[in-house]
Nucleic acid binder design. Sequence first.
DNA 1: TGGGATAGCATGGTATTTTATGGGCGGTCA
DNA 2: TGACCGCCCATAAAATACCATGCTATCCCA
Lengths: 160, 160
Amino acid sequence: MRRGAETLFFGSYTNKIDAKGRLATPALFRRALDLERVNAIYCIPSTEEPCLDCGGVDYIETLMASITALDPFSKERRSLERTVTARTSVVSLDKEGRINLPEHLLGHARLNGKALFAGLGHSFQIWNPDEFAAIVPDEEKIAGAAKLSLRNPTPSETAP
Amino acid sequence: MRRGAETLFFGSYTNKIDAKGRLATPALFRRALDLERVNAIYCIPSTEEPCLDCGGVDYIETLMASITALDPFSKERRSLERTVTARTSVVSLDKEGRINLPEHLLGHARLNGKALFAGLGHSFQIWNPDEFAAIVPDEEKIAGAAKLSLRNPTPSETAP
DNA sequence: TGGGATAGCATGGTATTTTATGGGCGGTCA
DNA sequence: TGACCGCCCATAAAATACCATGCTATCCCA
């Protein structure tokens, strides 16, 4: 599996959705995706928020692995399969790196003319830029508190 | 992982931002960065101060490691990802070691014609030189008091 | 010891490539 | 037929690579 910071999603980018419903994926994200392996992005409507959880093959494989690790007949696994696996859309990229989101995903994320890509490391989210801006103040408060509880890591602690 | 004092950021340097927005990274900092691995600097707008927290791959991987150590679906992790990862810009260096900061980072650090690089050991900060000069007296007072509580470190604690 | 050659660095300008975005054309399926 | 999809190409702006200059500090050898 590919690893390292160069395969992670960093930063935020706002792109336009054109008249034909096409949306350009940020160039930096395209490089983080393993498009050689699968020329597609996997999109899952978030259950908690009006946004889409997205990633490449690596992302969906990791997610599937954690679901299939559960007992095959457990209630949890079945509902996870239904809410996650069944809702996941595989959207492929055209030669210019654009995707075409299906109607129900556009609706879920309340997207109209523009879309914001927010890098979350191993995955990224797609938001309506206005909705995203609205949650930022709350996010900052939570993150500010969470930061205090993060231990200050030193390189030697993470070294192999 | 690379270690030792030759990979640390020491000293302060003030460089010019040219008409095209290019800013030369101090040569000593370029050597501390692991540019062979990833030819880029990771910049995060500080939440507390008008400056940018910066470092190389090692720096961001250490930071990401402490975030991914949190429960994947916790509110804290999500907020950290959105306020830290999503705001992190990956700026690449040209052959001469210059970077081109995006507009929102220039704004956050209130940079116009010049930028000051302040080495912090494993990371460094980029400041507007005037803003930095303004906080120095206060910093000296705090540091003077903090020094008294520093244990006397032995070389073996930091050496490989 | 002194002075010229040298190497490294910040900085400046120009050319080339990427990238986001726009539109056209031919199939396909209802 | 007409909405829609995948494909191809066009373009303007922005990002990036490439090449040039001047300064400074260092080194080396007479």
